[in-house]
Amino acid sequence: MIRFQDVSKTYTQGARQVQALSHVTHTIERGEFVAVMGPSGSGKSTFLHLAAGLDLPTSGQLFVDGAATHAMSDDELTHLRRNRTGLVFQFFNLVPTLTVLENTALPLLIAGHRLAAVRARAEALLERVGLRDRLQHLPEELSGGEIQRVAIARALVTDPQVLLADEPTGNLDSATGGEILALLAATSKERTVVMVTHDAKAAGIAERRIELRDGRLG
């Protein structure tokens, strides 16, 4: 499903070059729930961003469902994210001026659908994450856990084949984090899930773990 073939990624920070990933070769099969672990600066988020098409590798090849993403244009990557992947960020990244319902439906609105046409789907997802009664609230009126649940609902609204989550519980207390992890686990039955985390307990819900250290797979 997601295949890394000798992928490296280098960033420039000021005057120096930072090798975030170094010659990574790995395959994540369809339907797997994989946790990507490693200490701070190990390249976990870079691994996820490349898989999501948010960034391009400096060298190597990357395939998502057979499509060579390393050779895609920006628009092609964007459509890939729109149609095939769902993203959950550590810092939630909801649009502050949109309601819970609108934030959830946003990927479909971007695709040109009318809210009325996708409302039912968005509401169903919000029901699934336990926020049916918060449809018209703004993000500033929600708790951290509720916000992250909206983010998960948004990530699922296009029924993506891949769900990518970057430290989804990083900003939450342990109880709330547990709820979020349970949600992710529930969705993993229907799709491939890749979750970046530094929390061993969070990684415990995944079927498989991979370790990154200094940009290399352990």
Partner: peptide
């Protein structure tokens, strides 16, 4: 950035 991440193109 969020919009770009979830599928809105530059254009």
């Amino acid at each position: 950035g969020t919009l770009r991440a979830i599928g809105a193109t530059r254009a």
